[in-house]
Design a protein around this nucleic acid. Structure first.
Lengths: 208, 176
DNA sequence: GCTTTAAAAAGTAATGT
DNA sequence: ACATTACTTTAGAAAGC
């Protein structure tokens, strides 16, 4: 039937137009975040599923793209906070988070719980720390997880504190302020996590 | 209440109420004892929040109406009360492995970068639970008190069965 | 979707001393 | 380095934009 064909064509073209615009946005934001092609491709796949399910209706393309990028980063274990991603959009973190939750509930995307260790690599390299310190920080986080210290806590804050301790022990100290800034958390959070980690894991820190 | 109300008149004659129709269509009325807050609409319908029990809620509704009458607002008949949502907190006195629970439970969401609790949507009873590593939790969405107790027992048993619990003490619960 | 109301949980944030 | 206040999440109703 002609009518059926027309409707199909119309829907298809609207999806195509939406996708074309979204892919530009995805490319733009992905590049600003310095994401590898594989992560952008995964984000594109997630976004395509969302459009086909009509999840973008009533929402800005940009915020759904941002949410798809975040979901992709999480799946590929690329440490990026929602704030980092949302800063390149007109939407705020809350709106992007809302879209992200929608993607999780409506699409069959499996996203693992984020691992603080993934943040160690990013924070460590941004600070120019040695591989040994990053490895030590990861070991500290593993111990913390095993004694149930990490549940409910922001992975970025945990990673920041572990890095702080590891750098201290390896004599390549960075200030809490420097670490907090690249980790995207406050100094207070780094300090709180730091205190808890050294106390519960009985880590000896020499003065100064 | 099955009658329309003049909210402008109420704002003029009843003390300590807030009414800004541009901001929100309901008039805000706060009762000191029992401590509840009520949103009153011109349709005669109202929302009462903050009551700690059904008894307290009924008492509060009666007092709100008595108070309005005292200030010259004409209200007739008895109010029809429906409980729309019960919010409760509970404590299991155990440590919960949220990472493991997030992996093993079906309808859950656990995003520690956004919120420290694991959000679990239970089908039967139909409630939502916010579960924290401390073993404390929030149960919301219930319409009857027994749903709350049922949900707490059910999630405790499930977490135990999935080996997501580490003993600290005993079991207990509360209601808001 | 949004607006408003209340309450709990635990973490993080902003601001103040 | 502290404290205090405020915001994040969940549900539900109300009338209207």
């Amino acid at each position: 039937r002609w009518r059926k064909w027309q409707i199909r064509a119309r829907i298809q073209s609207s999806i195509d137009r939406n996708l074309a615009q979204a892919m530009n946005e995805l490319e733009r934001i992905g590049n600003l975040l310095g994401l590898p092609k594989s992560v952008k491709d995964e984000g594109a796949l997630i976004y395509r599923k969302a459009v086909e399910k009509g999840l973008v209706r009533g929402r800005s393309i940009e915020s759904v793209v941002a949410a798809a990028i975040y979901a992709s980063c999480r799946r590929m274990k690329i440490a990026r906070t929602l704030d980092e991603i949302a800063q390149y959009t007109k939407a705020n973190r809350k709106e992007v988070a809302r879209c992200y939750r929608l993607l999780l509930r409506e699409l069959n995307v499996d996203v693992p719980v984020s691992d603080p260790k993934d943040y160690v690599t990013r924070i460590g390299s941004l600070l120019g720390l040695s591989g040994a310190s990053m490895k030590l920080a990861a070991e500290i986080l593993e111990k913390a997880k095993n004694v149930g210290l990490t549940a409910g806590k922001d992975p970025a804050g945990l990673a920041a504190a572990a890095i702080y301790i590891a750098a201290l022990l390896n004599e390549e100290r960075r200030t809490q302020k420097e670490i907090a800034q690249v980790a995207g958390v406050t100094e207070v959070t780094v300090r709180n996590r730091y205190k808890e980690l050294i106390q519960e894991l009985k880590i000896e820190i020499q003065n100064q | 209440m099955e009658q329309t109300l003049d909210l402008y008149a109420m704002e003029r004659s009843v003390p300590n109420v807030e009414y800004d129709p541009d901001q929100f269509p309901g008039l805000i009325f706060r009762l000191e004892s029992p401590k509840v807050t009520s949103l009153i609409f011109k349709s005669g319908k109202m929302v009462v929040t903050g009551a700690k029990s059904t008894e307290e809620l009924i008492k509060a509704v009666k007092r709100i109406i008595k108070s309005l009458r005292r200030y010259g607002i004409r209200i007739g008949g008895k109010p029809k009360i429906q409980i729309q949502n019960i919010v409760a907190s509970a404590n299991m006195h155990v440590h919960v492995n949220l990472d493991k629970a997030a992996f093993l439970l079906e309808n859950n969401m656990y995003e520690p970068e956004q919120f420290p609790g694991l959000i679990f949507r239970m089908d039967e009873p139909r409630v939502v639970l916010l579960i924290f590593s401390s073993g404390k939790m929030v149960i919301t969405g219930a319409k009857r008190e027994d749903e709350v107790y049922k949900a707490v027992k059910k999630i405790f048993d499930k977490l135990e069965e999935l080996d997501c619990i580490k003993a600290v003490e005993e079991e207990e619960e509360l209601e808001i």
